[in-house]
Design a protein around this nucleic acid. Structure first.
Length: 675
RNA sequence: GUCCCCGUAGCUCAAUUGGACAGAGCGUUGGCCUCCGGAGCCAAAGGUUGUGGGUUCGACUCCCGCCGGGGACGCCA
């Protein structure tokens, strides 16, 4: 069915245009601010009156005279400075309820008239790292947006733009190297070197000497390799990688991550120490391998460059890269399943996918005269951006060392998404700190003509998740909170509550409920907050039974299911009663109130999807649950008089179906029959 | 220093191109189980929307100043 609010908007706009003699008018129909004003109010007449310089009340009267809404509303009323108040007719309400009842799949929510192709860029974890709270919002907000747009009939293309190509790879590679050496006990020095990190983390002198020893060790290894004496690279590392690839040996992502931090620390320490380490390069003249000394802290960047060069010479880098992607995505997919997020390997298209196009991006921008060299880097200066000195702010697309950046990759991605994926809309679900990056990205993409004005580019930004102390959420030791552990704790806490409330349930039911409630609570808390603002993460609040929380919603659903179970014991055949339902009996205020809310589900989805704001949907659902609770308290269902019961059964059923659809289908939050 | 975002009830948050008397939840206070799940319902108290101006018939919303908090600002993503 067409949204009631849209029908009203259309008809009233037309009437306004006719009365005012203005071509295009916006009625601006909104849900009434107060129940006493009716169900909808028209705000647009006053603006129009101002525009054509006439009395708003008089104009409203004229519009009302011209209107024919008899099939939907009672006689419209003009109120205040020029509002038009509309009240739905009971017959219309009943008709809509029956219409929803007949549509099991879509609850009578229409698909978009003009389906669009919408690319959603979200989640984007990094290679060699576990997912942490920093990925939560992008992942679940992006997922909810995808689900909603898909439900509305759009073609949604999920893009998991994983960080699999930057300087971080070099560090991850060196991390693998250290792990390999740590596991190989022949070399005494490497043994347990990971453990040394903690011990010397705050001891700069100690760290420096460790750094120096490692560097020296590395030089020795290198010399051994170069002398064809089978150094660590061939003797230890390469077989280790082979065993990893064949599955004979395993390494946990958490270990890689620890080693990664270790490498980072070493690099930071080495800065300014003047340590040199040898690497190989081919002599341009002869093509022979030769030694090249580079600063120790630049080793990881060199490794990254070797990966990006590709070719037979760099097969170790490529093998490790492949392994790390597989390993990382394996863990990410686990988290996605835990979170009930619709992402898998098919949606991965990481930074590396654009590697080959990066030179072309820079060339094209240079040829078109948009990019120029500045301090050795290639930059575009989009209009309207200024730096601290009031000069044009650069959007750097190639560093002075020739390397490309995420700006370059993002540009290549825009081009790909528009040209290959045929995107009408591209959404970027990332945190608000990247606002300026995207503003510049969009500006440059438009300058270059890679995204025409017909393509919507939107940064769907969100705020930070804060700890109780108001600073970004971290563990006590200052690390990022791992998503897996966070979710585990949520489920455990939910488990304790279920145990307390319903100890007699079988264990597998308890586990199912704890999972739905725990994970649901984390997600719902995020969705119900304003996307753009920061929020404080609190297990206690999100798992509370009261208020706008997942457990409250799930409870409302479970209560309805309980009525259905009880019906059987009381010889009430719900299906038969609903099937024979032709005339509704909506008399009690609580019934009417609930019914009116039920028929507005489509509006809630439309506004949610229109602004990409999940909290509109959670607000709607919460109000639905509240209205149901009011109805539930004041209107007995199973013991109702025979002429009232079918209507009440219908209200229960539609409420349950709407909650289930909203929670489960659109937000990926589980519902349970009992809890 | 420049730019961006935020400041709403004791606390956490809403408020959909500027609309009517700024709404919820928590907490507080007072009611409600011979009846389908009390993880609930009903009601009350609680506000000069940081502050001072301006635009408007109408401002939490738009403009300007100030105060307070956060973020971004040339080779990280």
């Amino acid at each position: 069915m067409k949204l009631v609010i849209d029908i009203l908007e259309e008809r009233i706009s037309t009437a306004m245009a006719a009365v005012a003699g203005v071509e295009v008018c916006a009625a601006i129909v909104r849900p009434a601010a107060d129940l006493k004003f009716g169900d909808y109010q028209v705000n647009g007449v006053m603006a129009l009156a101002k525009k054509i310089k006439t009395n708003p009340r008089k104009l409203a009267e004229e519009v009302v005279d011209k209107l024919d809404l008899g099939d939907i509303c009672e006689q419209p009323e003009v109120a205040g400075p020029g509002f038009i108040n509309l009240r739905l007719k009971p017959d219309f309400l009943a008709e809509k309820l029956l219409e929803i009842n007949e549509d099991a799949d879509r609850l009578a929510v229409k698909k978009a008239d003009k389906p669009k192709t919408i690319v959603v860029d979200f989640s984007s974890p990094n290679i060699a790292k576990q997912m942490h709270v920093g990925h939560l919002r992008s992942t679940i907000i992006g997922d909810a947006i995808c689900r909603m747009l898909e439900f509305l009939g759009h073609k949604v293309i999920r893009q998991n733009h994983i960080g699999d190509w930057g300087t971080q790879f070099g560090r991850a590679f060196l991390a693998m190297w250290h792990i390999s050496m740590g596991r190989d006990h022949k070399k005494l020095y490497y043994r347990g070197e990971l453990a040394l990190l903690r011990g010397r983390a705050k001891d700069n002198a100690g760290l420096a000497s460790l750094c120096e020893s490692l560097c020296r060790q590395h030089v020795d290894d290198w010399r051994a390799d170069s002398n064809q004496q089978l150094g660590d690279g061939e003797k230890v590392f390469w077989p280790f990688v082979q065993r990893l690839l064949s599955g004979e040996e395993h390494v946990e992502l958490r270990e890689i991550e620890a080693a990664y931090q270790y490498v980072t620390k070493l690099e930071e320490t080495a800065v300014g120490m003047g340590l040199l380490t040898p690497t190989r390069e081919r002599a341009p003249e002869t093509g022979e391998w030769r030694e090249k000394l580079i600063p120790y802290e630049q080793l990881s960047r060199r490794v990254t460059a070797m990966l990006q060069e590709g070719g037979e010479d760099n097969e170790q880098e490529q093998a490790v890269w492949q392994y790390l992607i597989k390993k990382t995505m394996g863990e990410c997919n686990e988290v996605y399943r835990l979170l009930v997020v619709t992402l898998d390997d098919r949606h991965v298209r990481g930074e590396s996918a654009y590697n080959k196009e990066l030179p072309g991006v820079v060339d094209e921008l240079s040829e078109k005269g948009f990019a120029k060299e500045s301090d050795g880097a290639v930059c575009v200066f989009p209009a309207g951006f200024k730096n601290k000195d009031g000069e044009a702010l650069p959007f750097i697309i190639q560093k002075s060392d020739g390397a490309y950046l995420y700006a370059t990759t993002d540009l290549a991605a825009v081009r790909y998404r528009v040209n290959e994926l045929k995107a009408d809309v591209i959404l970027y679900v990332t945190d608000s700190r990247q606002k300026m990056h995207f503003e510049m990205l969009f500006a440059v993409a438009r300058m270059a003509g890679w995204a025409s004005d017909n393509v919507e580019l939107t940064h769907v930004m969100f705020g930070s998740i804060l700890g109780e102390d108001g600073t970004p959420l971290k563990t006590r030791s200052g690390e990022n909170v791992k998503l897996k552990e966070l979710l585990k704790e949520a489920v455990e806490r939910a488990e304790a509550v279920v145990e307390e409330k319903n100890p007699e349930l079988p264990d597998d039911k308890k586990a199912e409920i704890a999972n739905a409630v725990g994970i649901g609570a984390v997600k719902y808390a995020d969705y119900s907050n304003n996307r753009t603002s920061d929020y404080v993460f609190s297990f206690d609040k999100m798992l509370a039974m009261e208020g706008n929380t997942a457990p409250y919603m799930q409870y409302a659903y479970a209560r309805i299911k309980s009525i259905e179970r009880k019906a059987q014991g009381r010889d009430v055949d719900i299906e038969t009663e609903l099937a024979s339902l032709k005339e509704l009996s909506l008399t009690e205020p609580a019934e009417v109130d609930l019914a009116k809310h039920i028929i507005r589900y489509g509006e809630a989805i439309a506004s949610t999807a229109g602004d990409y704001r999940p909290n509109y949907l959670t607000s709607y659902l919460y109000e639905l649950a509240q209205k149901f609770s009011t109805f539930y308290t004041s209107c007995p269902v199973l013991i109702a008089e025979p002429e009232k019961r079918p209507t009440r059964l219908l209200l229960c059923d539609l409420t349950a179906r709407t909650i289930r659809h909203g929670l489960s289908d659109l937000l990926g939050i589980g519902v349970v029959e009992q809890m």
